[in-house]
Each structure stands twice: as C-alpha cells, then as structure tokens.
Design a protein around this nucleic acid. Structure first.
Lengths: 248, 248
DNA sequence: AATAACGTTCTGCAGTGTTGAACGGTGCGG
DNA sequence: CCGCACCGTTCAACACTGCAGAACGTTATT
C-alpha cells in the first residue's frame, strides 16, 4: 500500500518515533531518524502541537506526545463494546488465580495488551493499555499466534525472531513445533523466554463463531509458576475464556 | 496560532471528529462535518489507515480509530514518571473510601481523567483513561479550576457554561463564588450537577513547589454521598493528596 | 573564547495535495 | 421491480503549498 498524502505519512511516522523507551525527542533527532529536513520536521511538530498531539517540554526544548492522544485512546476503548465485559473478566480472573492477568489481541506482528489486572501485593507493575510485545516469546503472544491463520504464522516465522533471553526460541522450525504443542494442549507457556525470572501461561479467546479474538495470560515470578502449578492455572484461564466466549 | 502544514492540520481535525458517542464515521459524514471534499477526506483516511491510526469496519464500510492510537497512549502513560505512583495512590484511596476514585488533570477547558479505581461492587462503570468532562460541573473539575491561575478561571467563566441537569451552575458569578468557597474549604462537591443521582467530592493535588498538578475525586450514587459523609470523604482525599505531594 | 549543536525562521521553486466530476455498488422507497 | 439517492472510491489537471537549504539567535560544551 502506498501513502496517498505524503506529508501526512511523514507526520504519522514522526508520531511513531515516540516509544516508551524514548518518550521525548528533539527536532534534530527526529530529522536524522526519519531522514527529513529539520525545517520539515519542525513544521510537522508545531502543527501537531497546535492540535494537542504533541507537547513541548519547555525545560529541555524537546517534544513528547500530548494528551490529545489520550482522548483518542478513550474513544478506542469505550467504542469497543466488549471492552467493559473483558475488563470485568480480567479482573475476576486475576482474583481467582491471584496473579497478574492480561487480555491482548494481535496487532500486525505483535501482541497489544488491552486489559490488565493484578493482585494488591504486586506493587511496581509496569503496565498500561496499548503496551506491545512480541508474538513469539510471550505466553499471550504464542497463545494468539498458535491459533491464528496459517498465513499469519508463516509471515511471522519468515521474519527474523528477536532474542531476549537464552530461553527464547529463535528457530522457526522449533517455534512451529511449539505452536503445534500449544494447539493440542490448548494453552501456551513462556518459560522465561522474554524476561529472566518471569513465566507466563496463555490461552486463546474465541467468539461464538469460533473466530480468534485475543488471549488471556497470567504472568509472574518463576518461583510461583512451578511446572505443576501451570496446568491448574491454564485450566482456570481456559474456563474463563469459555465463559467470555458466551458473553461476547 | 496557525497551522504550518495545512494538509496535516486537516488530517488531525479528522481524527478529532471521532468521539466516544460517535466512534465510527463515514467518508461523506466527515467531509460534511469538516467542509472538505470527499476525495480529500478519503486520501487522508487511507493514509491514516496505512499507519494503523484508523481502521475500516468492513461490514459497515465506515471508519473508526485504530490500535495505533493505543500504542501512542501507552507511550504517554508510561512516559509520565509519576503515573505509576499516582495509580497506586488512586487504588489505595479507592479501597480506603470504598468508592470510585479518579485522578485527573486540566486539559484546555476540560478535565481529563488519567487514573481510576473502584471497589468490586461497582459493576458497570463506564471509565477509561483519556475520558474528558467539563471543568464547571464535576467535583474533579471544580477542584482543579478553583486552584488554577486567574487567567484560566476568567477564560472558562467567559465562555457559555453547558447545562447538564437543573442543578448545574451556569451563572458565571455564582460559579465564581462557588470556586471561592472551594478554595477556603479545601474541597469541591458536585451535587448532581453533571448527572442525576451522582455526587462527587474533589480535592486538588499539588507538587512540592505548590504547583497544581491535578485533582482526586470520589464519586458515587447520591444515596451513599450524604451531606454528613462528604466532609469525611474530603478529609481522606486531602490526606492522600498531601501524601502524594511528598512522593512526586 | 570558540566551537558545535540545538530549535527556529525565511523564501522560491518543484512537487503534490486538492478540486470536481465520474464510477460502480448498495439500500431505500415508490 | 425499478429508480433514486447516497455511499465509498478513482482519476487527471491545476493551483497551491509543503519543503529544501541557508541563515538566525541560544545554549551547552570544550
């Protein structure tokens, strides 16, 4: 697909430069990264600023995303009718398993987390709707990928697979086998493949037409996610996914 | 302020057409609303779609905001360092008062809710970060407005004040008195001024430099928010605001 | 003091966003 | 069952505007 309005395309690429790791960028930095002239980026940024999508940090002189983005995000979350139901299910599930629970969907070649809940004892959780993670090395991602259409799986496996820990499965063949295991078993696991010391369990969520809509996952320290507890967790997640299916 | 890049400005105005009430719009509808040609809007929308900020609903043929917006929202929320602390405070506060609690900031002439927490018994809550409400008739809004700079107050009071219920204060003079009461008393109330049957209490949140950063509010059915309970609620909110001040 | 990098401003030209009409498809009412 | 109205979509030619590139004043670093 080709961009119809090229100046707009550039502007949207500017927005996409901002990440949780680099939430604040300067004009020159953006111009280097996107291979655009400084004056060009400056025009774009000031126009965004006028509309509330970018804010200027007056002390550093650099720019960050503005609250206008949050208003749009609220439109997205409130617009999805099932969102509130899913929120409730995630919260209930978190209390039942007494661990962090997420709901996420596939977004291009990644998982996007849309809902999350966690017990009170989890104190310093870095989480928020819109968070993005790989499909290939997270419990939630693998649960989604395993039940996605073949062309999606082929597409994801044909690209280089990022390594995060030495447990990350980076071989496409092995990952394909893993996905088969997940399909037959009905749930996925993440044995510290994304982050050291963190394990996950994931199950797919379908709607009444048996279409994949997303996945639940539960995650926590490897100490609590012992091999013999995981099937029990998976069972609880699966039951909730089934209940949600009937409520969607 | 004038838009440097006019085509971008149009595109951003397209995005701002989407609201929680109308999350899905057609090309013709947008073109009428913004007084632009259909083909023009179409070019803009397809370019947005390519970048993930707009999605097409294939069944209706209309368009809605895309998940790319959520990714940006996560950058905003994770970027604000204090956000996680505030989240924790709101959650604690919600347990202490056993009611819905919000944290919000001023955004132009409105409040934007950034954090919210609520007890389990609250079932069907319509809430999400990025939600926007008036400054003039909500507990959280009036708590912010009362402690804002004079030019902000004058600006808000000089505009027509929307009416939502027959308790809404729409007279600028009366509202100015109300703000003075809030300042001396240290907390604001919303006595069904925004929604029938719903009451609120709000308190401002300052940082160590005594600059206003936002406000807490607690809200719920008027039955539970009796006149003699409100001071107690306000006291709890104020204590939390003071604690937050020292943690920011 | 000198350098380098920053954000910002300006102008003329080339490239592109916009116009306006026409297309096929869909759904409604006569 | 037909015709109308509206939808989203496409296209070509032109007028306009977005952008390259240099120059500006500031700030931070050496």
């Amino acid at each position: 697909m080709e961009a119809k309005v090229k100046s707009l395309d550039k502007a949207l690429r500017v927005l996409n430069c901002f990440t949780p790791e680099e939430p604040e960028l300067g004009i020159s930095e953006l111009s280097r990264r996107l291979d655009l002239y400084k004056s060009n980026v400056h025009s774009i940024v000031t126009t965004m600023e006028k509309n509330g999508f970018i804010e200027k940090n007056e002390t550093t002189g650099r720019y960050r995303l503005g609250l206008g983005v949050m208003r749009l995000a609220h439109v997205v979350t409130s617009g999805q009718g099932g969102q509130r139901i899913i929120h409730r299910f995630v919260r209930e599930l978190s209390e039942e398993v007494d661990e962090i629970v997420y709901f996420g969907v596939r977004w291009h070649h990644a998982v996007m987390y849309l809902e999350g809940a966690y017990p009170d004892r989890v104190y310093n959780l870095r989480w928020g709707a819109g968070m993005v993670a790989p499909l290939t090395c997270t419990g939630i991602g693998k649960a989604i990928l395993a039940f996605s259409e073949d062309r999606v799986i082929d597409d994801v496996l044909s690209r280089p697979i990022d390594r995060f820990t030495d447990a990350t499965i980076t071989d496409p063949g092995k990952l394909r086998d893993e996905l088969q295991t997940i399909r037959t078993r009905g749930y996925s696991t993440d044995n510290m493949e994304h982050e050291y010391g963190v394990k996950c369990v994931g199950v797919p969520v379908f709607n009444r037409n048996n279409e994949l809509v997303g996945a639940f996952s539960s995650t926590g320290p490897s100490l609590r996610f012992s091999d013999n507890r995981i099937p029990a967790l998976a069972k609880m997640l699966k039951e909730k996914a089934l209940a949600l299916r009937n409520s969607l």
